[in-house]
Design a protein around this nucleic acid. Structure first.
Lengths: 179, 179, 179, 179
DNA sequence: TATGAATGAGTGTTCATTCAT
DNA sequence: AATGAATGAACACTCATTCAT
């Protein structure tokens, strides 16, 4: 069995994803984790520290210097980008990342970072994938931002609105617009 | 001076947009509205009823049967769509609509409706604007969803991530992909 | 349709009997009665006045100067007494009479009066029914009180404890003890 | 000084007996007990739990397998039964037991159990005390129930109606009827 | 007589946080 | 590190009662 600190974070991850940060009492976190209430505050002096720690230790925006891109295949390159977000995090943590964006700056910051990395990757991929570098930087920027928007939309709003979106089709669409 | 019920809704709109539903005590709503605490519960038996009423009475997803589209000008048509969301709501209410999507089903429902209307309009606009109806319905669908995603992203995540996106550029991009 | 005052009392009678005085809000009485809340306080300035009026107007302890007794038939005389309590009141009002004895002095007073009348009748009946007046007044008094106790017990505690008691058998028992 | 939990129960016992469960705010219980309000809910999550615990821990219906009876002395046997109810409880708890019978099932259940034990004892005592076992079980049953009714009446209604009843006289009366 | 909005003290309950051990 | 009792401010909500019309 993992240590108390880990069990607390495990419990909080599950509960925050399920009911939200505000609606989850510290007592419930402790109970779910199987630790006494006092111990929770030994590790995390304030409740918000649990959330901050969760974001800090359990989400990682992979900011790779290099992005794999296949020259000449913009659609495929974007598709591959969409297949896996540059985000190392469990489904529960992903839920928390979007859900609690208003709760604390650290969450917002992480989400912003993901967004930035997404745009950076899309831009970079397109730059490399496109046959010729045309001077039209603005259009490329819009394409990158659009793709990032679609990916975040899919991760977040789709659950709320029930509407699905096919990233591959979007990738193809964007590629078509730029070639 | 407007009636008590209106003042309560005014106060709630402001406070929910600012600090969020959970973080806003009913006492503060009453104080801000300048009414005794008990009166709030005279009009809204449960706190959640304030939010529900706000969504119900102060957001309207304009589900127009017809959408104005200029044949041959897909980009311009989308641009015009972006200029104004089919959503009759104050900036504060817009904030609430996105922020409290997890708080109550009625908010989620309204947001979903907006999303649906957005997609419907984009699809319809593109259908009319494009010179020839090509059999490629899937691509058109992807384009519509993409545009909706961008618009919602702009309304919601941009505030969180600080990243701006230019709808006109996206409109042009999409048009280019489809012609 | 009866007048407002009557409808209020009707509603209160039903609700007090069902859920108890304390647990019944005046708003519910008004709603059940189909009258506006303000009108209730027009007729009954304080909530307790509803209960007092109910007891006052809808329970009557029949304090008959004469009690029918058949000389020589003590058991039968008591049985007849048991058949009908000297209490003019609906089942609901009877329930209220016992249930709210602690709520207000007027209820307690009425209940005490019923108890007194019960004892008086039993004593009187026995005095007349018994063949010879023996000097043993104390025993007769005990018999009367016992019979009253049984009748009140039957009316009140039987519902709570689920235990039934046959007044006729008790009547016979007491008669047997006294002859 | 006893522990906080005990002091809370002490205070509740006193206050419930005095003013009744409904009329006693939890704040007053805490104040009387000399503990902060929050601690009350640490031990008793709901107010009703205080009453339930009180009944559970501070009233005991002594369900003795054997009942002491003196053969040939029915009156004396019943008198002895009346001297002390098979109920281990303070006067305050006794008051609560009768007063709050409508408040919660657990109180009602305990009261019913007391009633049952009373009848059982009276029946058993009479069976043993009477010289000859006559086939008349029904009469014996009525006698037992009558005696139980008188004892409960004495404990409960006497306080309300102000009427006293002498159990010894009733014991003698019943004995006389059965010999 | 009739109406329902207005009032505000009070109620049970929650909960993050502290603290003594 | 570990424990759970202790704390009290805050919360949503209730309700008898008043009052202007």
């Amino acid at each position: 069995m993992p240590g108390a600190r880990t069990r607390i974070l495990d419990a909080a991850e599950e509960l925050f994803a399920g009911g939200g940060y505000d609606a989850t009492p510290t007592a419930q976190i402790a109970r779910t984790a199987g630790v006494p209430k006092g111990l929770l505050f030994h590790y995390f002096p304030k409740k918000i520290d649990v959330l901050i720690t969760l974001i800090d230790e359990r989400t990682l925006v992979v900011e790779a210097p290099e992005v794999e891109a296949v020259p000449g295949d913009a659609a495929g390159t974007l598709s591959r980008l969409a297949r896996r977000l540059p985000l190392r995090a469990s489904p529960a943590m992903r839920r928390i990342l979007f859900r609690e964006a208003d709760t604390h700056g650290s969450v917002r910051e992480r989400l912003g970072r993901l967004n930035g990395e997404l745009i950076r990757r899309a831009r970079f991929a397109l730059e490399l994938a496109l046959p010729t570098r045309r001077g039209d930087a603005a259009r490329l920027e819009a394409a990158a931002a659009t793709f990032a928007a679609v990916l975040l939309y899919q991760e977040n709003l789709c659950q709320l609105t029930g509407h699905q979106i096919d990233p591959d089709a979007v990738a193809e669409l964007i590629a078509m617009a730029l070639v």
